[in-house]
Simulated assay, not measured.
Amino acid sequence: MSAVADRPPVTGTTGQRPRRWAAPPRPSWEEEPARAGLAAKGLVLLVAGLAVLLPLWIVIVTSLSPKKVIDDTGGLVVIPKGVTFVAYQELLSGGQVQRAALVSVGVTAVGTLFSMTVSVLCAYGLSRRGSLGHRWILLALLATMFFGAGLIPTYLLVQALGLTDTYLALILPSAVSVFNILVLRGFFMGISPELIDSARIDGAGDWRILWQIVLPLSRAVLAVITLFYAVGYWSAWFNASIYLTDQKMMPLQNVMIQLVQKQERPVGLATQINTGQLSPLAVQMAVMVMALLPVAVLSPFVQKHFKKGMLTGAVKG
Rank of each mutant, 00 (worst) to 15 (best):
V221W: 09
T245E: 10
W207T: 14
Q253W: 05
S241R: 06
N254M: 09
R200D: 00
A204R: 06
Q261R: 03
A220R: 14
R219M: 10
Y233H: 15
L244D: 10
W207L: 15
I225M: 07
D246H: 04
W207H: 13
V231D: 10
L217H: 11
Q212C: 14
A236P: 12
N239V: 11
K262Q: 11
K248Y: 10
I257D: 13
R219L: 09
Q212V: 13
M250D: 05
L215T: 05
N239G: 10
M250G: 01
L259G: 02
L252C: 00
L222M: 06
Q247Y: 14
F228Q: 12
S218T: 08
Q261A: 14
Y229N: 08
I213K: 00
R219E: 02
V221A: 07
P251F: 01
M256H: 08
L210T: 06
A236R: 13
V214K: 05
A240V: 11
V255A: 00
S218L: 02
K248V: 00
T245C: 08
K248W: 09
Q258A: 10
S241L: 11
W234H: 09
V224E: 07
Q247S: 13
M256L: 15
S235T: 15
I201T: 01
V221K: 05
P216N: 03
L217T: 06
W237F: 15
V255S: 04
A223N: 04
I213G: 05
F238G: 12
I257R: 13
I209L: 04
V260Q: 07
Y229L: 09
D246W: 03
Q261N: 12
G205A: 11
V255N: 00
D206I: 11
A236S: 15
L217G: 07
V214P: 01
W237L: 08
L210P: 00
Q212K: 15
L222P: 01
N254P: 05
G232N: 10
Y233P: 14
G205C: 11
L244R: 06
